[in-house]
């Protein structure tokens, strides 16, 4: 039981790479910074967000996000600025556009296909 609890603790515990000197004094802004950081992909570590990455570029982006928030910029303005510099790759949720439509449509097609196959099998 103890081991299971320890495993569950490690599975669900959040490892953050934010350094103490990066944390904003304003708790509300810091919370927004963490939400933004979770939406941005670290460019050199592939599937890690910038909040959880130790890479140099992730640290620079975290500091930039916090500086922009302190200057009064909104979440959308900050994400759109970083998106303009690094493109869709930096976003965990790529925008829905004609060239990204397959990303959104294919899983639906695949699900429909699966349902169709199972439905046909039953009858």
């Amino acid at each position: 039981m103890k081991t299971i609890l320890i495993v569950i603790f490690f599975l669900y515990s959040q490892v953050q790479s934010v350094e103490p000197d990066e944390i904003l004094a304003d708790q509300e802004l810091e919370n927004v910074a963490r939400i933004i950081g979770k939406e941005l992909r670290c460019l050199v570590c592939q599937n890690e967000d910038i909040e959880n990455s130790n890479a140099d570029i992730a640290r620079d982006l975290r500091i930039l996000v916090r500086n922009m928030l302190s200057e009064g910029k909104t979440k959308d303005e900050i994400i759109s600025y970083i998106h303009s510099r690094y493109g869709d790759f930096v976003l965990f949720n790529p925008p829905v556009r004609f060239d990204t439509s397959l990303l959104w449509v294919l899983p639906v097609i695949f699900l429909m296909l699966l349902c169709y196959t199972f439905f046909r099998k039953k009858h």
Binding site: V44, I63, R85
Partner: peptide, 13 residues
Amino acid sequence: NDGISSIEWGVYG
């Protein structure tokens, strides 16, 4: 020195 200009240029490495 702070990496801000590099971000401005979209540099990541």
